[in-house]
């Protein structure tokens, strides 16, 4: 019972992180902040899935959600890299035109 609620707490915390990230994506004005907020969303989603994969010992955790999370992380890292490159490029273009 306690173990279950522990997983539930992690899951709820993950959802909360996802929600915080969502607020940031929708609310933030700055590009970089929004990107970080998106990463927060991803972390939240990952937490939810990992918490849900947990099984009380001696059962081992379900590996399939882990695989999902790892793939999600890979996708997010590459997407963040692309987004950062775009932000840098935009920044330099905008400062050029401002001069």
């Amino acid at each position: 019972m306690i173990a279950l609620s522990q997983a539930t707490i992690y899951g709820l915390a993950g959802l909360a992180v996802f929600g915080l990230g969502l607020m940031g994506v929708l609310g933030a004005a700055e590009r970089l902040r929004r990107l970080i907020a998106l990463n927060l969303c991803a972390a939240g989603a990952g937490m939810v899935l990992i918490a849900a994969a947990w099984r009380s010992p001696p059962a081992v955790p379900d590996p399939v959600p882990h695989a999902l999370v790892i793939t999600g992380i890979v996708v997010m890292v590459s997407a963040t890299a692309v987004a950062l490159a775009l932000i840098r490029r935009l920044h330099s273009l905008e400062t050029d035109t401002d001069d």
């Binding site: 996802f18 969502l22 994506v25 590009r31 929004r34 990107l35 998106l38 969303c41 991803a42 989603a45 939810v48 899935l49 849900a52 959600p65 999902l68 999600g72 996708v75 997010m76 997407a79 692309v82 987004a83 775009l86 932000i87 490029r89 935009l90 273009l93 905008e94 035109t97």
Partner: peptide, 26 residues
């Protein structure tokens, strides 16, 4: 500049959609 700005907004929307999809799949 216009294309980059629009592209970035597109990327954010797309990533958010993807994350929801991931959560749903999970």
């Amino acid at each position: 500049v216009a294309a980059l700005r629009a592209g970035l907004a597109y990327m954010y929307a797309s990533l958010l959609g993807a994350l929801m999809m991931l959560l749903g799949v999970g």
